[in-house]
Design a protein around this nucleic acid. Structure first.
Lengths: 253, 253
DNA sequence: AAGTGGTCTAGACCACATC
DNA sequence: ATGTGGTCTAGACCACTTA
């Protein structure tokens, strides 16, 4: 027979498709270039559109593609390095931090946050919404939870509203002496609210960074920041802006 | 008319399904319990199986469910906190680290790694495979890339093979004075090789932690560790084992 | 209005684990 | 042999952007 190799472990079509597309992206496309639409691509590869989409979804997850409804699929730029754990001795809102306060409300935090703060599950806390922009693009949305016990002077806060109120909470928080912080990173999916802020669809993959701020021997504040997983590489330490390239010239010897 | 509210922004079915299932998981199911199979669930909710699966996929991504082919879908335990950035002054393989050396080969590293090491793209390096296990479950697979320039005594390495050779490379590496390290976290998908190690299917979402080790004023080694994104919460700082709970008792007042 | 990606359906078959 | 989740198909319609 003419078959040279029996496919003992048949690779799924979408997996093979992904490999082929990855190689094509490395060699034949440049950043920002638009791909043919899904129907054409599927036809070209001789697969159903759903199968093609399975491959595209993975490539988008890996940050190689960007898809926008009504527009098309483009080759994504390399992920941007976003510094996350730079200074363990600075409060949020300290001079030079990357966040822009948006507004502030008093609301019931998620149960998991209430547990970290050791407030009761029915205790409302100051909730500061912040937004982070890099290279002109929104990369993260953040909610900072601050219990009453962590803001010495309430009157300065209640006098303001909107972004001014958010800044007031941060200012009051900075009066405490920060004793330390720790962080955790996990995978999540964007809530409808975060999605809007990040210019993505709800459910889009995000990296959730939870930071606990310690002061006065307790957890004085908790921040939950959601970063776009498709476009961000979170950096810890001092290598913030090192670029990681996809092999533009893979020529194995 | 009897309609109380015009659905001005019709929520996708799978999104609503996910919400319903999340609430059910919080209130009616306990960890390890098996759900009805996908065909039954789809019928019960009156949707196509593909739509039901879209909801299940998201819940698995969020670490709420675990699905195994041939077995079924079970309620996942809370993610385990895995310490990642504990000691910035310790080499890999130092006493007490969480990794088990598996084997070691000499191979051409990925182009991105070669760039970090500042070796040529056609230069082969020692490649140590390691594996990390927590609570009896594999949580991460790792490749440590070490150029010849970072191992003073090659003869001690070439004499061994397998895990012994891996340990020899780590031992030689520890003779250098570590000047610092930095890390980056990003989302990826498991290669076929990693998938096997992690007991997942290829393409499964993983958190990729890239660590650069500095010594002698250069990058002396690079580690690329892939953690199961569904089961792991990466912790930085000293809050390793704090548990995060899903609200088991959400009773809003 | 036309073209894009996003959602959804109702099937089919396959790979795998278990009995 | 049976039952599970994983892959795949060939359609349909919807939401959104752009012209």
């Amino acid at each position: 027979m003419g078959t040279t190799q029996l496919e003992s472990v048949p690779e799924p079509k979408y997996w093979h498709l992904k490999t082929v597309l990855t190689e094509a992206l490395d060699s034949e496309f440049s950043v920002g270039e638009i791909l043919p639409n899904e129907r054409d691509l599927a036809a070209r590869f001789g697969v159903a559109r759903a199968t093609l989409r399975q491959a595209l979804e993975q490539l988008e997850l890996e940050g190689r593609l960007q898809r926008r409804r009504g527009v098309g699929t483009t080759v994504a730029p390399p992920r941007v390095g976003v510094a996350v754990g730079t200074d363990p001795h600075a409060w949020p809102g300290a001079p030079g931090d990357a966040w822009r306060p948006v507004d502030c409300t008093v609301a019931l935090p998620p149960g998991a946050v209430a547990d970290l703060l050791e407030t009761g599950r029915d205790e409302r806390v100051h909730t500061v919404r912040r937004s982070r922009v890099t290279h002109g693009r929104p990369v993260a949305a953040d909610l900072l939870y601050v219990p009453d016990a962590s803001v010495p002077d309430l009157s300065a806060i209640d006098a303001a509203s909107g972004a001014a109120r958010a800044r007031a909470v941060l200012r009051e928080l900075q009066r405490l002496e920060l004793e330390g912080q720790d962080q955790a990173v996990e995978l999540g999916s964007a809530s409808a609210e975060d999605a809007k802020e990040l210019d993505r669809l709800p459910g889009a993959p995000v990296l959730v960074v939870t930071t606990r701020y310690y002061a006065e021997d307790r957890t004085a504040a908790v921040s939950v920041a959601t970063y776009r997983a498709d476009t961000c590489r979170l950096t810890f330490g001092d290598a913030g802006d090192v670029e990681i390239h996809h092999d533009p010239e893979r020529r194995a010897s």
